[in-house]
């Protein structure tokens, strides 16, 4: 598994495509895709986590299941933890869940890239 992280609008998807050669048709919107097995990469994984929370699912468990089924999957996820604590409880839980889930993802990933200003760097 390869993980691409960074702030919003930093060019993660472009960088990932250049690096891995993935085509647009191989990339799915993580929050709305029905069968992930048809795709090579899941973009906006943070939105998938948000949806899982809304449906009362455990994002870490869901990630582990996904990785068992598709150990070669590419995940793209926003970094969301660098702001003040959100006022809303749901937003706090979401931010926490994305962080915790991505820690697990980074641990399991073969490679992790962080993208800033369009520039990607391998951090693992």
């Amino acid at each position: 598994m390869q993980l691409f992280i960074g702030g919003a609008f930093q060019g993660k998807r472009e960088f990932m495509k250049q690096l891995t050669g993935a085509a647009e048709t191989e990339i799915a919107e993580a929050a709305s895709v029905s069968d992930t097995k048809e795709y090579r990469a899941l973009d906006h994984y943070h939105l998938r986590i948000r949806k899982q929370l809304e449906q009362g699912q455990d994002p870490v468990r869901k990630l582990e299941q996904l990785l068992q089924e598709q150990p070669e999957i590419i995940l793209l996820c926003d970094e969301v933890g660098m702001g003040i604590v959100p006022m809303d409880k749901k937003d706090r839980e979401y931010r926490e869940a994305v962080g915790r889930t991505m820690c697990v993802a980074a641990q399991k990933a073969e490679k992790v890239y962080r993208v800033i200003c369009g520039i990607g760097e391998k951090i693992k």
Partner: peptide, 9 residues
């Protein structure tokens, strides 16, 4: 400025 990672919707 880095204003891209606070995760607010």
């Amino acid at each position: 400025n880095e204003v891209f990672s606070d995760g607010l919707p």
